[in-house]
Design a protein around this nucleic acid. Structure first.
Length: 582
DNA sequence: GCCGTTTTCGGCCCGACTGTTTTCAGTCG
């Protein structure tokens, strides 16, 4: 019986939710949520361990969870969970996706009005039936309707980080087929869009029908939407639509270019082809105007750009935002690469809400080949995250200094993710902050300030000499929560003026600041730091997403703080902010 | 539920904000 760790983690999450609905002990609920995190992020084959009753000693997994995980790992099912599910309709989970609704309200809606889905909730709001319930006034109704609208706006989209593993698994399966000569994922995935609604696979083969058959029969496929000679569309078990196009080896570069998009980029590219008397489609150049020279031979995608006398345009840049003009002028940036990173900032440990100790995080960073690891645990106002008071912070700094003595070529860099309070002041005084090597300042509350107040709040923080960088600038949670109101233009100007770095938070849920702003920020001399915001060792891997989005934002190695080597970065941090301005 | 341990049960999770209230409940981070 095989069950994935994600599936097990999801079951634990659902149990937590169902226990909330039942009004269970909050600490019990938290234990299940925590258990889900542990399962999802455990550094090792936790399913194997669970099946063999070898979970003892894993922090957060006590005897009750050990038994339940054993049952799940060996049978794929859990009686306790099945019974719990039986107490509520299956659709009730979707109500938790509505901002502002929690277990108490959902329970009341269900028990008093028999509301079990977003559709019935919407109807109850529109017919004012909901006002029969105490605690639901006119403001609640409009807030719920607004939240439903937000939810619908995001429906059918997926976060890049959530589907990368799945996408690469399917790609690997396609490549394994003996008839495959080349294969790739095109579309917005290749362009590193932060959210997508489908995946576009492409394969070069002489046996198109074979591959199409094979693709539609993959384990991950739930439903076949369409299936023809050269093209198939399927829906995966998680609802994601995947298209596959099978082409010849000669057509492959053209198809890859065409299906990578963006549409707007391709329109411009085809216009350039037209000027040369060629027409370009997903299969080939056609020589339309024979009074002009014939198109050259094309064996890979680079040849297409070369034929148009353009520098090769990396897929991440293909959004028709000036990349064609820059390629024409030979002025495309040399984009940052994952291999350029030498360290990272903004990571958490068990001192606040991380799951690994300082030592474990340091070890993981070294395993990735990094020269330094910036620690930035939460400050005291982030109660929910077990934020540090000054005394604990100072102790942690001391601990870091001691740990550092054992390494010559690796260092932990002592920082803090300090809360920016409502008025723009910081959660620690300057005296405390001056003890740190660096400081990430972030907004974690009062998200509903008016734009000018929020902007002024963040600007005030940036003007503090001790604030090295701003964390997750807009607070957005992709597909969940819109950015709070903040004037990013003004923030970027302030960053340039004060020598403050803006983080590129590469948690797949955030990818904040948005890639669309980086080009401008870069041109004003603003630097970024690609930060995983890791709450466990495995999340250091998210640096990969940060690099892709940095590339999408036209960033080069020299624009990224953590491309500096250890000596350079220590020297940089020892300078005053005004000296850091480029 | 988990953890730590004075091995048997108490502590764990605090404050801001919102909306509906009239003194507070629920949600969120």
């Amino acid at each position: 019986m095989s069950i994935s760790r994600d599936a097990i983690a999801d079951i634990l999450e659902e149990i937590a939710t169902l226990l909330e609905l039942k009004g269970e002990n909050p600490f019990k609920i938290k234990a299940y949520k925590n258990g889900a995190d542990v399962v999802r992020d455990y550094d090792g084959d936790i399913i194997h361990l669970a099946a063999n009753n070898e979970l003892k000693g894993i922090k957060g997994i006590g005897s009750a969870l050990q038994d339940k995980l054993h049952e799940l790992a060996t049978t794929g099912e859990l009686e306790f969970y099945q019974n719990l599910r039986g107490e509520f309709p299956a659709t009730i989970f979707e109500l938790f996706e509505i901002q502002g609704l929690g277990p108490k309200k959902i329970k009341a809606l269900y028990q008093k009005l028999d509301i079990t889905s977003i559709a019935s909730l919407k109807e109850a709001c529109e017919t004012d039936r909901i006002k029969e319930l105490s605690g639901f006034g006119p403001k609640s109704v409009s807030n719920i309707l607004k939240a439903i609208e937000t939810k619908e706006k995001f429906a059918g989209r997926y976060r890049l980080g959530d589907i990368t593993a799945l996408a690469e698994t399917i790609l690997a399966a396609i490549k394994e087929h003996p008839s495959t000569s080349r294969a790739a994922i095109a579309g917005s995935y290749r362009r590193a869009k932060e959210t997508l609604h489908d995946l576009d696979f492409l394969v070069a083969t002489k046996q198109q029908a074979d591959i199409i058959d094979y693709f539609t029969q993959l384990d991950e496929v739930e439903e076949i939407i369409a299936k023809g000679e050269t093209k198939a569309a399927v829906r995966l078990v998680n609802g994601l639509q995947c298209d596959l196009r099978a082409v010849s080896n000669e057509q492959f570069p053209f198809a890859l270019q065409y299906f990578s998009g963006s549409k707007e980029h391709n329109v411009s590219i085809r216009q350039l082809a037209n000027k040369r008397g060629w027409s370009l489609n997903e299969y080939a150049f056609t020589h339309k105007d024979t009074s002009q020279p014939a198109p050259p031979n094309v064996v890979d995608e680079r040849d297409i750009y070369r034929a148009l006398e353009l520098e090769f345009i990396e897929p991440e840049l293909r959004e028709n935002r000036g990349e064609i003009e820059a390629a024409d002028a030979g002025e495309l940036p040399r984009l940052v690469e994952l291999e350029n990173l030498r360290g990272t900032f903004h990571n958490h440990t068990t001192a606040s809400d991380g799951r690994n100790s300082l030592e474990e995080m340091a070890q993981a960073a070294q395993d990735l080949g990094l020269q330094y690891l910036g620690i930035a645990d939460h400050s005291k106002s982030s109660f929910q995250a077990n934020g540090l008071y000054a005394d604990r912070l100072l102790k942690q700094i001391e601990e870091i200094r001691q740990l550092n003595e054992q390494w010559d070529d690796f260092k932990i860099i002592a920082g803090s993710e300090v809360d920016i309070l409502k008025d723009g002041s910081l959660d620690f005084d300057d005296d405390t902050l001056s003890q740190l090597d660096y400081c990430v300042a972030s907004v974690h509350n009062s998200f509903t300030l008016a734009e000018k107040d929020m902007t002024a709040r963040i600007i005030r923080a940036m003007e503090n000499e001790h604030v090295t960088m701003i964390g997750h600038l807009t607070g957005r949670l992709l597909l969940r929560r819109d950015p709070y109101a903040v004037n990013v233009d003004k923030i970027i100007d302030c960053a340039a003026r004060t020598g403050t770095i803006i983080e590129l938070n590469c948690s797949p849920r955030r990818l904040d600041m948005d890639w669309r702003w980086w080009h401008k920020a870069r041109d004003l001399g603003v630097m970024t730091s690609i930060n995983p915001d890791a709450h466990g060792v495995e999340q250091l891997q998210n640096l990969h997403f940060g690099v892709r989005l940095a590339r999408k934002g036209w960033l080069r190695r020299e624009d990224v703080l953590n491309c500096m080597n250890l000596d350079e970065v220590l020297s940089f941090l020892s300078k005053s902010k005004s000296e850091r301005i480029r």
